[in-house]
Design a protein around this nucleic acid. Structure first.
Lengths: 343, 343
DNA sequence: TTTTAGCACTCGCATATAATGAGTGCTAAC
DNA sequence: GTTAGCACTCATTATATGCGAGTGCTAAAA
């Protein structure tokens, strides 16, 4: 266990490193507020802290930088929760007071705000619609054989498909079909639509419809959920302002990484409770070895439906980001819920 | 006017510079196929070409690089159109044979292909829906006071709005309203919907509806066109592989630029006829001073509805890109049109 | 008159060398 | 246990040096 003095010194070093991005030396720490010991004393403690694995030395004659273990200790034991003033809260409130009529825009907006306030990059994973329930299904014909199918969920999410109608199925048949479906599928969650059709409605369909096979194909088209979740990013360039990305190679590695949506989705693996911090290796992805990510879930009416994450260098302002992501996600969840509140 | 020999030399220099990105010297040109003169002769001609403004010299003892004027001449007079073999055409065909059910996905797909084949960055401006005509309007209630409005166009584009119903307007009133609108607005282009309502339907509305003011507000919400065009990009990182962007500052400038959708839209200002090439300054944007952009329009049933552009360094393989963008856009337009062909 | 070989000259780039200074570890005194 | 002092380390910066690709000019060859 660390002594009180060691904690102080570790704390001072990390705080300093967070803003300077330079190895911090004993003299700097000694002069820092809240540390009353001489540089020599600090040096001794620093040597101990390094031995214990909380600090690292880039080379012999340089200062110390925090190790991953150091950051972890800092996040777990040395942070004090931010106190928001009422004027802070008011300005946050204002950021979310704008009237937005589409979920996607609201997410993008939140993402932008968070990136702006933290000065790091924000990644959001779009709302999981598959837990939404079907409210209304409709097919709008465009011509003899092409049409658009539209599914509206109880939360107001709209999903569309362009479909081609089988030649030998008449428009009136389709109409009957949709009527039937609306009747029988309303309230079923999107993820279960197909299964429900296949399990419960086959017999009925066989009875009602002329061309059972084609119809079933068509239904599968209509009910297919595409892109259940979408990735939103903000502030990529802010990331590139960070001194650790002045290196062109690292920059490219990051940008390549960010172009792969699948990896980003992995990055935001859901965590339903509170704010999570993963530091460096803990992310288990080569490309973001030198990054940390702070994630939390946003809710609609208390139910987690998506994830927000702030990605920054391991040398990131954990205190500020954790506080900001926490409070802003609350406001955002509130805004989202209010978009549905009168259900 | 340039002599035949000067053209040859300019052509050789530019071709060489396009692949090497290094100033090219007289010896290199002299050895190049199709140039039968000694280095000294080439040197003299190069001096002349420089005087006329077609070449530049980074510093006294370096080779020459093409100037903007040089590139312009090259593009206007020295390019020979690419001949595609039937196997080329077949493989292009295959690239577009995939069945895609949403316009957005098709655009993104094309954008990706073009970027991959050119090794530069591709930017697409989404289809202009405002020229689409209204086919079907619908309001799906979610709860007492919230609903989703859906507008489907003749081309199958779906536009949705989340709306809040005024307290004192009943559901049946809304239904009547939508019926009326469907009747009266079908076939009107999206861009003219609002105007039509305000000009032609006000009296009718006043007669039919109880709460004229609120209803009109609601209508404006429903008929508002958001995001008429969307920006798609591909291959940002390919751009960063180019030697001219190894400089971190330039890289950041470009990335910042790319984050501003508005600027990108400006960049793709529509040109309805054929392939357009803008080189360096001709783009009139500080941030892409050292870039060129090659654009063309894609069509649905012969009508231009959006723009595709390839952005690369001024030292870009014009020949290849021009040919590729031309042929691929044709295939893409064909694909898009076939999505609507049975109208 | 046009083309080419020859040669002195320029200048960016890469490499080697020296100077600087921030920061350390250790020792001995407080 | 703490601190001042000092020799030592090593990345970074500044300064020289050599190299070579490429030029412009001149004079000879075609």
């Amino acid at each position: 266990m660390l002594t009180e003095r060691q904690k102080r010194i570790l704390w001072a070093i990390i705080n300093n490193y967070i803003v300077s991005a330079e190895p911090v030396g004993s003299r700097t720490v000694s002069k820092k507020e809240g540390v009353g010991f001489s540089a020599a004393t600090v040096r001794n403690e620093m040597a101990d802290l390094e031995e214990m694995g909380y600090l690292e030395q880039p080379h012999t004659s340089a200062g110390r930088i925090p190790s991953q273990k150091g950051y972890r200790f800092y996040v777990d034991h040395l942070l004090m929760p931010q106190k928001w003033t009422s004027s802070d809260l008011l300005s946050f409130q204002q950021l979310f007071s704008q009237n937005i009529d589409r979920v996607e825009l609201a997410i993008q907006h939140t993402s932008n705000i968070l990136s702006q306030l933290t000065n790091y990059m924000t990644i959001c994973l779009g709302p999981r619609v598959f837990i939404d329930r079907l409210n209304h299904l409709q097919v709008v014909p465009l011509s003899d054989r092409s049409a658009v199918s539209i599914a509206v969920t109880d939360r107001g999410y709209v999903q569309q498909h362009r479909i081609t109608l089988p030649e030998d199925v008449s428009v009136s048949t389709i109409e009957r079909l949709i009527n039937l479906l609306n009747h029988r599928l309303k309230g079923i969650s999107l993820s279960k639509l197909k299964a429900t059709v296949h399990q419960e409605l086959t017999n009925e369909l066989k009875r009602y419809m002329d061309h059972y096979e084609q119809t079933l194909d068509l239904l599968d088209q209509i009910l297919h959920i595409h892109h259940e979740e979408r990735i939103y990013t903000s502030g990529t360039t802010r990331m590139l302002e960070q001194p650790e990305f002045q290196d062109v190679a690292k920059m490219k590695m990051l940008l390549n990484f960010l172009e792969e949506d699948q990896r980003l989705i992995q990055l935001l693996e859901p965590n339903t409770d509170g704010v999570h911090v993963r530091i460096g290796d803990e992310i288990h992805m080569e490309e973001v070895n030198h990054c940390s990510i702070i994630t939390t879930s946003y809710m609609i009416n208390g139910e987690p439906v998506g994830t927000i994450g702030v990605l920054g260098p391991t040398r990131m302002d954990y205190q500020r980001v954790i506080s900001l992501i926490d409070i802003l996600t609350q406001f955002f969840s509130q805004q989202l819920s209010s978009m549905y509140e009168d259900e």
